[in-house]
Design a protein around this nucleic acid. Structure first.
Lengths: 224, 224, 224, 224
DNA sequence: GATGAATGAGCGTTCATTCAT
DNA sequence: CATGAATGAACGCTCATTCAT
């Protein structure tokens, strides 16, 4: 999978331009003609590389979920020698990744009504792999003494964590603004840390507070 | 509220049919023709009552946000003689309301790209009135001794609470399924209670645990 | 015809409102709904008085052509004891009449494509009665010594005169502007007098020049 | 003119078919669907070449006014070695050009209410360039001794000339009939010559009369 | 690989007109 | 006389997609 040469430069350019336009204007109002014109290629050429608009979206979703899975794997290794700093750094990367593909959490429900295959891969990947991966990760963090809580609590913690993560990115008042990815990631990270705070073990409390303090001074985004 | 004559039966039927169809199939793939045909009225008649499709959505958003504001007011009065049971009961009502209008949290971002006026009323109402109302409510609950936490914690609590609330409803794998509103509301409520748990004061801990226990046995929804 | 009571006050109000709106915005973009709303009556009521939009236009055309015919008759009597002043005064009245119904010369061709009956009454009246009436009038004016020219010349004079008269009123850059009827009539009159000038007999030249001089000072409209 | 590649054959076919249909049936009752069906192309294809119906009309107006401007330039050169025959020949060409685009003078006022950009280009071109061009031309003809009159007279002559020219073409009883362009142009020309007659200088009177006589025998059109 | 003209079903909307009350 | 909700054919236009070159 990683070995296979990327299909073609044009293929990639289409994917990247689409991502950009989808994020800026919303998938709904970006037509295949817009994408082609933006790239100075013909529509015919676009359809040479993609059978339909759906497939562009599917490819973007593939990249999005692949990235998420990769970060999840990284998190597995990181937790071997756990540190708050490592966790936060990873969290920011994940949020930046989500931000890069923000049109997806924003319009995923809308897309379902016009893209059946996305629906399927979503429930397989997002609600399957990733969701379970996050759950496993949280249990591991508890095993390593970073988090505390019973099984039910940690289960809900994992579930809510994901909801917050994507919910933050999908917030409609944030999403289209040309915010710096940096700012959005920081603020989101802060929210998530406050969310985790009550479950951080006493052993990790001190570095946790330190990190929290170091992130605070950034200017706030508008409230929800 | 009860005094104001409803505009006309047909007006209301259009609004209600639209809500139903939007929830089932997504706003995007429900055309004005579909709505009219569903109601066995002519498109002309539909457009006699609404100047454009946007206005149907705007009316739905008006009803949605009006309901939310009403619940918020109810919450203000409830918190006078606070009880966990009262809070949970209200929370379930809010979630059922959200569920009734679930196409809105689901597709709000998408709608922004084709409905400028919605964008404006959203930022005024959702990100304004409601957001601030929820924050105030949480501070009041702390004043009454139900919640504990410093100002920053309670602030984040309020913000995250809202994100979770709508995030749960908007979860794409849930939204289109013909779930019983009851089940969705229960499960969402449970998630939110677990989210609040660490901040519940010791004085209210016992009734809180009792309520939590009474809700648990319901069969679980699929994980995120 | 003149004895018959006008059909009803509402009938007349519809005719007059339509005239006003047609002149202001063009018949094409004035719908029957607009007219009804403008008058604060229901569409049903409008259609109680008129079978269709065409009929409103036909009634307006009837009034327009009736007025023209009346002025023509007046001209016949006037020419008994001919004077330049009388002619000019009549001409101004005709131009003001044309201006009152200016949407007709403006959009007559357009109307033909959607109003067959207008086509018929137009060719009967405008191209029949009126056209012949004007011709007769010009010959009479020659007989009375006001104009000079052979039969062919006078024939062309009459034809061109009418063309100029309506052409002036229909000038698109003039028509929609809220010009004072007075100004438009004066300017148009001046143009028409210059057009007649070469055919005015030497006997009437002096009063003619006097009248011409007395009209000149008005500020000019924009050139064609 | 000959150098500029035409946009595409289909582009031109749309323009030409539209012109034909507009002339026959009136712009108002010719829909984009009609045009497409007439050409056996899809509506999509029509809209591939034109963004909207307005743009087809604008393109036709562009061609119309370009032609008029060209004839005006030709007139400028012609008047160097002026002759009645040359003038008449040009006049016939102009009238045939006007006849070719007759839907424009016919429905220009109507179009204004649904086509703002046409309104602008009309007042710039028709009421600007062309109007001034005609005025200049008439003054030049006087300088060359073909016409006689003081400044005011020549000014009105120019203005009225234009009004007659387009008024003749726009005559609703003429416009839709499948008249031979030749006949219409001849008759119109004759009218215009009679209009000019009083101002033709004695030096040019003889050739003028000769030309007039040579045109007369054609069968007459119905009177106005 | 690439072009760009062509397709056509379907969209949101309009408006003259009807009709039950 | 008057109301106003209801009709439906038709409009201008969109856009994912196809296909000959």
């Amino acid at each position: 999978m990683s070995r296979k040469e990327s299909k073609s430069p044009t293929f990639d350019r289409i994917v990247e331009a689409s991502l950009q336009l989808f994020n800026q204007q919303g998938e709904r109002s970006v037509t295949t003609n817009h994408i082609a014109r933006y790239l100075n290629i013909s529509t015919g050429n676009l359809y040479y590389h993609f059978a339909c608009k759906e497939d562009i979206i599917n490819e973007l979703y593939r990249r999005y979920s692949k990235g998420m899975a990769d970060y999840l794997n990284a998190a597995g290794e990181l937790s071997v020698n756990a540190s708050i700093e490592g966790l936060v750094s990873l969290l920011e990367k994940v949020l930046r990744h989500l931000w890069t593909f923000r049109f997806i959490p924003q319009s995923i429900s809308s897309l379902f009504s016009v893209n059946q295959s996305l629906r399927e891969s979503y429930s397989k990947i997002e609600a399957g792999l990733i969701s379970r991966g996050v759950e496993k990760l949280f249990f591991k963090l508890r095993d390593q003494g970073m988090l505390e809580g019973d099984d039910v609590q940690i289960g809900f913690l994992a579930r809510n964590f994901q909801l917050l993560q994507t919910g933050w990115i999908a917030r409609p008042d944030i999403a289209r603004c040309p915010q710096e990815a940096q700012v959005v990631a920081r603020e989101g990270c802060l929210s998530l840390l406050y969310f985790l705070a009550p479950y951080v073990s006493s052993r990790f409390r001190q570095p946790f507070e330190r990190v929290l303090a170091s992130m605070a001074p950034l200017q706030a985004l508008p409230a929800v």
